[in-house]
Structure formats: structure tokens, C-alpha cells
Design a protein around this nucleic acid. Structure first.
Lengths: 340, 340
DNA sequence: TTGAAAGCGCTAACAA
DNA sequence: TTGTTAGCGCTTTCAA
């Protein structure tokens, strides 16, 4: 059906192996024959069959990208398309293809990863999240399959290659910024504490607060799974404390939107009554009202780096585990205000 | 290295072909041997090599998903992860894998598609956008490669399988809703007019306006590439007309956010001064302020249907072109208000 | 510099 | 019901 290496060989009057060498641009083939073969390829409209090639070289030139399971709406976070774009960009350069798993349930996700790994569909995997005791990660570790995680692994930090920001430091800086603005009552709102990133950001916040000597009762650390009813209650509780916070460190831009909304409904406005800072700097944070003071974690770069590390690892199994910390910058916008 | 069908055959004392048949659950193999073979597979930790299988059966059990090129920030639209989730869900059920292309430039995108198609990496392709004279679509048509598009094709509607909403009707309904609320000055803000979806929504708007007999000067139809400076100017111009609109039909939730923001800066508030309606019903539209009256186009379902159609098509090349119109519903929320 | 031939892991006639 | 064998399209020794 499709034109194969043999057809080209015949047309060019050479052996199939020669054609193969031309494809690989093997230097031991004369320029003469190369030209002739290439001409035939063009004429016949030849394109290598990736499957056959992969089978022969036992590799796939493809990488798997694993998104978190999407029981919640987390996947609607623009973080994902953006990091995908970064990964895709590097993959494109290096001629790798991208497989994604968008797992519905945890279990489906796990099945898909197994399919990718055990079926030899990909050469390596990028995990787009890091959570405590994650089954997928443990599986990858067990099978010694090349993988890279975006975010800090919850365990075996030194054996795993990962790409992350210094979330602790960023969070601390964000908190200190609020303190410099005169805020003394600063609370933290994060997502699931199973996510390592939440923990890091929480700790950065705690560290800054501790150094400042300002109060940080347990009630100031709220975990709002993901907005909605549960999250709403948490926020309402927070603001009905005797000493409600005037400043907020929120672990994600999207959560910030939700919080701003709730505050508004409670008759509090941002930044007049409450200053808000958060993380990610997704496009939205610029166009929301007010625009958010947020940590630009450089999502795209995270993606590029993750892809780079993975491909290095896939190409060379001996590649040592590394840690890449992508620098962040803080975008100061209008969601924060000096307190009097 | 890895366990192959031969190893299993040896262990179970049968021929490789028998193992192959067991994998396919061929009914002509005795239960007896099946059990024995399966036991050996378990013991040896056998997993079929997809590449080899695909090579043999000349198929890949994988589908390619093509996102629009991302020169702009369009990719940060939660539409994409959400539709990916729908596609992924159906793909998972049918044991297909997902390849995505997140093309940076138009050209890179095109290259990636060519890689997918010509390299036999996928059995079919889902196009996540539809624009006038799109090179990718033309390529797919030319090569007669199975594909379905999400959105209405700009051409050859009857030869192409596509999944879409009735955007014309939805837009008309949205516009009429504003009219019923007493608005007489209603403008339309859409994205690139190269996108078929923009055109459909614009026409629905125009149809409603025409029937109403209300004015709709050319200045009421603005095209705001994607927010930002250009978009801002367009909006400013719109609201400095002698008769500025009191109602807006906006082609996308994300754009609506941007517009609300600009209006606010111009001292206009939503819905007090301007009523806003838009499309998509992404998660954000619930948590923004005010929550948006928007068309729920059922992104997830669009994805599921697209995947279903594609897989049918990939399995049976003779499958006729179909058109699937996913029903929409309008979510009435607080961005619209009766005018006095 | 090139060709012949074996093999990557699997499927599918064809035989038995 | 099972085994034999010839591919699928490519790479890669080994020889020439």
C-alpha cells in the first residue's frame, strides 16, 4: 500500500539497506547515491514508517505526559495547556512526539500509564504533578522507567529527576511583601495538602510569618480542596474569625479568582479590605479584576526543561538524577495594597 | 531484553501463534491452553509490544489531536483541557491512545501533523478548531486521511465529519435574550473572523438583530483578535460611539473577562451599565464577577463525540461523513440585567 | 561504498 | 485446536 524502503530501493537501483543509510544520513554513502536515492524518495512520496523503525531500534521517539486525574475541575487550570506548550516545543525540536493521558479517575490514569510503559509506546514519562504516595510515581520507580516530575517528589528526592520552582522561597517572599505593606494578619489558602507544591508554599508562608512574629493561628491555614461549596465554607469561616486576615497568600491564581468572588459576596473588596497574592501568573491573572500580584513560575519554561531532562534521560539511561530549579519572578499588580 | 511472545510460548509449551491467539482471545483456542498461557504471561510479566503489533496489523490504536497553533494565548483557554478530557475518556474506553500536537507556529503544527500521518503514528486525527483555508485540513483532505473536526468546516461540509453546536441558533437566542431584557443597542465582540465559529456566532447575532429591527451599525461588530492592546482599542472605540451598546454578545468566556475588566477601567460596570453574554461555560464563568450568562456548549461531550466519530471512521474507512450537533443550554447568571 | 541477510515482536494465512 | 511460516517496514551486522 504505502511506499516502502524497498520501493525506493528498486526505483533508485540500490539495496534497501542503502536507502536506510541515506535516511540516517550515514557518511559512508557516496553523495552520488544519496542524491539518487533522495530523488526517488521524493518522486515516490516516501515516508518512513515509524512503527517499523521503532520496532527495529527499540525506541519510540515519543514521550508520555501524565496529567492529574480529573475528578475535580483542576484540569481546567490553564497551567496545563501552558506547560504542554512548553513540553511540546522542545519535543518538536528534537522530533519527539507527545502522548498524553488525561485520566478520568485515578485508576484509569494508572491504566493508561501502564499501557504507555508496558506497551512500549513511549520512551519516558513526564508527570505533571507530585502528590504524596502517588501510585503512578511508585510504579515508575519500581519499573525503573525513565521519568521526570514537574514539582518536587514527595520522597526519594535524590533519585528522581525533577523540575520545580523554589516554592518555599517564593511563598516566603510573597508573604514578606504583604508584611512590608503593613499587613499583620495574613492567612494562607491552599489546595490539597497531598500535593507537594501546596506544602512547600505553606511552609514558605509559615517561615515568613514566624520570623515576623505576627500571629498565625491554625485557623489561618485553610485548605480549600477546590473552591466550590467546601472552599466557600472555609473562606467564610476564615473571615468570621475575631481577627480576620487582611492579607492572603493563595496557592493558585484560579483559586484566587474564586476567593475574590466570595469576598465580594461577603461585602469585602480586594484590595481595599483584603490584599491577595498568589501563584502561577496564568494569563487570566492579568485580566481579572483586580489584576493579581502573583508569582510568575514560568510555566512554559518548566515544560521545556522537563522535556529536555526527560529526553536526555531516555537517550541515556545512565543519566544521573538532576534537579532543575526554574527561577521565578513576582508580578506586582493591583490585588495588594498598603494597609494603614 | 523484555519478555516476548516467544518466551511465553516456550514457558507454556505452545507455539508463538497460540500465544498471539490467546492475547486476541481467539475462541478457537481451548480454555485449557488459554489458562496455561495466561499463567505463563503472568509469571513472566509479559506485555505485548505495541509497536510490533501495530506493524503487523498496520494500525496504531492511537489518535492524534491537533490544537491550534499558539502564537497567541488562545491555548490557555480552558476549552482545550476540557475537550481533551472528553476525547481522552472515550479513547480510554476503546483503548486508544492520544497523541497531541501543541504546535507553536502554524508551520510547526503542520510538520507535526505530517509526522503523525505520514509516519503512521496515528489512525486518525481530531482537529480542535476550524478556520478558513486551513492548511492542515486541506492536507488531510488531500491525503484522504481519516479526521474529524470540532466545529464546522469552512468548506466541503458534506464530505467532512464534524462535531459542532448550533452556534447560529445559540447566538441568536443569546441576542434575543438581551432584546427581551429590553436592550436595543447590542454589539458583538468576536475573535478572528478566520475561525468559522466566530462567523456562525456573528451571523446568529445579526439574524436576531435584523428581526428585531434595532440598529446594528458596522461599528457594533468588533473583532478583537485576543484581548490585549488591539482588543482594548476596539472596546474603547465601541463605547465612545454616540450610541454605545448596553448589551454585548461575546464569542468566548475568556474574552468576556477581558472585556469586563476594560469596561470597569472605563468606569462602566457589569451588569449595571452593560449586560454581557457569552459562550462556552468554562468553569471560570461561574466564579468570575459577575458570574456570566453564557452558552453551555458542552465541551466535554463535544470531545467524546469527536472521539467516537473518529474511531468509527478509523475502523471503517467507508464510514460516511456525518455531522453531530451537540445540544447547548444557556446558563443564565448575573452578567445580564433588565434595562429600564 | 554498498549489498545480503538476519532480526525487532507480532499477526495471520495455511496446514495439520 | 494448534503449529509452521511468511511477512509487516525498518535497522544493522557482516561480507564483499
Amino acid at each position: 500500500m504505502a511506499v516502502t524502503i524497498k520501493d525506493v530501493a528498486k526505483a533508485a537501483g540500490v539495496a534497501p539497506s542503502t536507502v536506510s543509510r541515506v535516511i540516517a544520513d550515514n557518511p559512508r554513502i557516496s553523495l552520488e547515491t544519496k542524491k539518487r536515492v533522495r530523488k526517488s524518495m521524493k518522486e515516490l512520496g516516501y515516508h518512513p514508517n515509524v512503527n517499523a523503525r521503532n520496532l527495529a531500534i527499540r525506541s519510540t521517539q515519543a514521550i508520555g505526559v501524565v496529567m492529574p486525574s480529573s475528578a475535580d475541575k483542576a484540569l481546567q487550570n490553564p497551567f496545563f495547556p501552558e506547560i504542554l506548550r512548553g513540553i511540546g516545543s522542545f519535543a518538536h525540536e528534537t522530533e519527539y512526539s507527545l502522548y498524553v493521558s488525561t485520566g478520568g479517575t485515578e485508576e484509569e490514569l494508572f491504566e493508561e500509564v501502564k499501557r504507555m510503559v508496558q506497551g512500549n509506546r513511549v520512551d519516558g514519562i513526564i508527570l505533571l504533578y507530585s502528590r504524596v504516595g502517588d501510585a503512578v510515581m511508585n510504579f515508575l520507580l519500581d519499573t525503573k522507567f525513565p521519568f521526570v516530575v514537574v514539582g518536587k517528589p514527595y520522597d526519594q528526592e535524590n533519585e528522581i529527576t525533577y523540575v520545580d520552582n523554589d516554592n518555599f522561597k517564593a511563598s516566603k517572599e510573597l508573604t514578606n511583601h504583604l508584611i512590608e505593606l503593613g499587613h499583620q494578619h495574613i492567612a494562607f489558602i491552599g489546595g490539597s495538602t497531598d500535593l507537594v507544591v501546596t506544602v512547600d508554599r505553606l511552609q514558605g508562608y509559615e517561615s515568613a510569618i514566624k520570623e515576623s512574629g505576627f500571629p498565625s493561628p491554625e485557623e489561618y491555614k485553610v485548605q480549600a480542596e477546590f473552591l466550590k461549596s467546601g472552599g466557600r465554607k472555609a473562606v467564610e469561616r476564615l473571615f468570621s474569625l475575631e481577627a480576620p486576615p487582611t492579607g492572603l497568600v493563595i496557592a493558585d491564581d484560579l483559586m484566587s479568582l474564586g476567593v475574590i468572588n466570595m469576598l465580594e459576596e461577603m461585602g469585602l473588596s480586594v484590595p481595599e479590605d483584603v490584599s491577595i497574592t498568589s501563584f502561577n501568573n496564568v494569563y487570566l491573572s492579568e485580566i481579572t479584576r483586580p489584576p493579581l500580584t502573583t508569582v510568575d513560575i514560568q510555566i512554559y519554561t518548566l515544560g521545556v526543561q522537563a522535556a529536555r531532562c526527560l529526553i536526555e534521560k531516555a537517550r541515556n539511561k545512565e543519566e544521573p538524577a538532576k534537579r532543575i530549579i526554574v527561577p521565578y519572578t513576582i508580578q506586582y499588580r493591583q490585588s495588594t495594597k498598603r494597609i494603614d
